[in-house]
């Protein structure tokens, strides 16, 4: 496959899709569903009113706060569970019970605890990311090849040095993978939380545009923004993973 095709083919796909969309709107004669042009104008309007950037900013602040809290607490907690079997036997059943509860289901409780504020959605995002990260960190410690630990002990490493030289590097790659997955879930929950609990952000934009005057051009514009921002963050993750893992890959 030639280089040009790598750019031309996806471009063609986008154009075909946009064309089909435009045709479908014209053919059905819908007055509610927007055409691609309507969506572009809608986004322009949002940018003009200054809402666009402030909503993106609000969403990012929420998702980053909740997610970082989950990372900072979740990784050490999960690794500790993986390292101390007794702790794991006691705590793991609780985690397994709480984990499948959709984070959104915590919404009513979050509202009692934190009121209608930024903290409630941040808490939901924290929950959404926390459990996958804890479980992945725990499993990462389980899956350290025993040989590595033996070698570390054989060379007389103290526990902190064993941590730094063996356990952390060995668990790093699988945890990194889980961080990306956890962010995907956090991003999904963010949108839902903003649709229910707050009055700013991209999720709110979508539900508000629909409820206040059936502005479907803004609904679809909001969806595209969610997709593009999510894609950019995911690309950041992939770039980070590649950079950090180069050592592992080239070994």
């Amino acid at each position: 496959m030639r280089r040009g095709e790598l750019i031309l083919l996806p471009l063609a796909a986008v154009l075909v899709l946009a064309g089909a969309w435009q045709l479908a709107v014209m053919a059905t004669g819908t007055t509610i569903f927007p055409s691609p042009g309507d969506v572009a104008r809608g986004l322009g309007e949002l940018a003009g009113r200054g809402i666009l950037w402030s909503y993106i900013g609000d969403s990012l602040v929420r998702v980053v706060s909740g997610y970082l809290a989950a990372v900072i607490i979740g990784i050490p907690f999960g690794m500790a569970l993986g390292w101390f079997p007794i702790l794991e036997r006691i705590v793991n059943p609780i985690i397994q019970l709480l984990r499948p509860i959709s984070p959104l289901a915590w919404m009513p409780l979050a509202v009692i605890w934190f009121g209608v504020s930024n903290t409630a959605p941040i808490f939901l995002i924290f929950l959404a990311a926390f459990f996958p990260i804890v479980v992945a960190s725990m499993n990462a410690v389980h899956n350290i090849p025993p040989m590595y630990l033996q070698a570390g002990r054989n060379f007389g490493l103290s526990t902190p040095r064993l941590m730094a030289k063996v356990i952390v590097p060995a668990t790093f790659p699988p945890i990194l993978v889980s961080l990306r997955i956890a962010f995907g879930i956090a991003w999904l929950v963010l949108v839902a939380a903003e649709m229910i609990a707050v009055d700013s952000g991209l999720g709110y934009l979508i539900i508000d545009a629909r409820n206040a005057g059936k502005r479907y051009d803004l609904v679809v514009g909001g969806m595209l923004l969610i997709g593009v921002v999510g894609l950019m963050i995911d690309a950041l993750f992939r770039w980070g993973t590649r950079t950090l893992m180069r050592r592992e890959v080239t070994e």
Binding site: V191, M195, I206, V229, G230
Partner: peptide, 10 residues
């Protein structure tokens, strides 16, 4: 990355 919930209005 478009959260499936963002499709709710549609």
């Amino acid at each position: 990355p478009i959260s499936p919930l963002a499709w709710i209005p549609i």
